[in-house]
Simulated scan of single mutants.
Amino acid sequence: MTEAGFLGCCGSTRFAREMALRAPFSSLDLAVEAARDIWWNKVDVQGWLEAFAAHPRIGDIESLRTKFASERFCGENSIFRFCSGEQEAALSSANEHTLQELADWNRKYEGKFGHVFLICASGKSSSEILAALKERSTNRPIEELQNAASEQQKITELRLAKLMSSGFNSSGGDTQAVGPLTNVPKAAVLSAPTPSTAPASNLRPPITTHVLDVALGKPGSNIDVSLHFLTENSIAEGDQGSWTLVGNSQTDNDGRSGPLMQPSNYLQPGTYRITFNTGAYLARLHGNSGFYPCANVVFKVRPSQCAEHFHIPLLLAPYSYSTYRGS
């Protein structure tokens, strides 16, 4: 867990220096929490651009080899080692036509935005990457800067998992504490806090909720609530992904749910679902299970909203429910 090691995870020198100052980390969750705080609150736009510049164009590994030929960047956990491995998996089946299209669209993208196209390539095919490149090329510069920063954060978290996995293995520690972390799903870094790993912070979870029983005119207490994140596996064409549990809790006497995820000032963009076990509550309070045994509220957090707080209340009655984005 040295500055050079963290520089391999993210090419921003400010990021690497700040991470080294906070290290060592006793768990991946704590390392990710620190990385998010540093990336979104300590690293400025110039630092973001520095990190973007550490990535080659998609498919152009040789330029990266030349650019980072020094020992500083070519170690076991170097930028070159990470980038080449990530792109090799994404482009192993690319044909000449796709590679040429990628090269052409990369030039168009860089001409418009002034930095390389950045995407977390893990699990994505060359055609998926090309489609994303074309789609994002239509964005406004300020929006695309945010998109690139969000993709960098995803890449950083995957590399941190690999870095910490190798660190535990090399130190002779308990490798089961980290496990095989070479392909960590997004939701793995969004889990609810536990007493042993939750950081001391005055931040609140980015997603919160409460329930109001509009039929009785009082809070809906003791309702089981769970939060899921849609993991887009992209293993096969047409794959819609799967829901991964982030955390669960229960509403208190005021109808407010306990923490469903770690306190943070950054929220992973994507699709979320809050599930309320309304059937058990209605059977207990109203003598029947109501029309809906559960209430699912699905909503999307866009990259431009990742620093915002999402409060999603549920207004509940035996035969209806509604929801809205609160404050």
Rank of each mutant, 00 (worst) to 15 (best):
T231N: 13
M164W: 01
A307S: 13
I223L: 09
Q100T: 09
T278A: 05
H309P: 00
Q268I: 02
H115I: 01
L245E: 12
F168I: 11
L7N: 04
T197S: 15
S125R: 13
C306K: 11
G287W: 07
A35G: 07
K42Y: 06
A16F: 03
R65P: 00
L21Y: 10
N77F: 08
Y272G: 07
S242T: 12
R284L: 07
K108R: 15
S70Y: 03
Q100L: 14
A53N: 14
A69Q: 12
A187M: 04
V297Q: 12
Y109Q: 00
N265E: 13
A54Y: 08
G8M: 01
F291D: 14
I155C: 01
T66L: 15
E88N: 11
S63L: 12
N222W: 03
Y319F: 07
N77H: 10
Y266T: 07
E71F: 10
I58T: 14
K67H: 15
P293Y: 12
G247H: 05
L99H: 05
K154E: 10
H311P: 00
A89K: 12
S126N: 11
S127L: 14
P303T: 00
L28I: 10
V225E: 12
R72A: 09
F168E: 14
C120S: 13
V211Q: 03
S126Q: 06
N233S: 09
N95Q: 06
E232F: 02
H311I: 08
P56A: 10
I119T: 11
L315D: 12
A51D: 02
D44I: 03
A54R: 06
D29H: 12
Y109D: 01
A192P: 00
G167I: 00
Q250E: 13
F117C: 02
